[in-house]
């Protein structure tokens, strides 16, 4: 029996954000928006969902007069991502294309 994939991560934009943050120590909102080719509104909603699950932390500061949102992955987020990748591998090993 296969484990169900984490529904919070099995969504394109949230998975893209988590994959980026796995490789980085921190990333700004505009960086994530550019790399994922997403809209600001959608990205903002998905980041809030990840933050509510404590997969990431959002730091809201200012650079000069402009608001600045910086995202970091948490240990809980790293564990969830690693679990998600292991579940994917397990699924693909048993269902080779």
């Amino acid at each position: 029996m296969f484990k169900e994939l984490d529904p919070l991560l099995h969504a394109q934009l949230r998975l893209a954000v988590m994959s980026l943050l796995m490789s980085l120590e921190s990333a700004e909102f505009t960086f994530l928006k550019e790399k994922t080719s997403s809209t600001a509104g959608n990205l903002s909603v998905q980041l809030d969902k990840l933050a509510e699950a404590e997969y990431i932390v959002l730091e809201k500061t200012f650079r000069g007069k402009k608001p600045l949102t910086t995202c970091r992955i948490t240990p809980k987020g790293i564990a969830a991502f690693e679990q998600y990748v292991n579940d994917l591998k397990q699924y693909l090993n048993h269902n080779p294309s």
Partner: peptide, 13 residues
């Protein structure tokens, strides 16, 4: 999903 993960990790380089 795996392709997306690979692509994003490359993007973060």
């Amino acid at each position: 999903s795996l392709d997306l993960i690979t692509s994003m990790i490359r993007q973060a380089q």
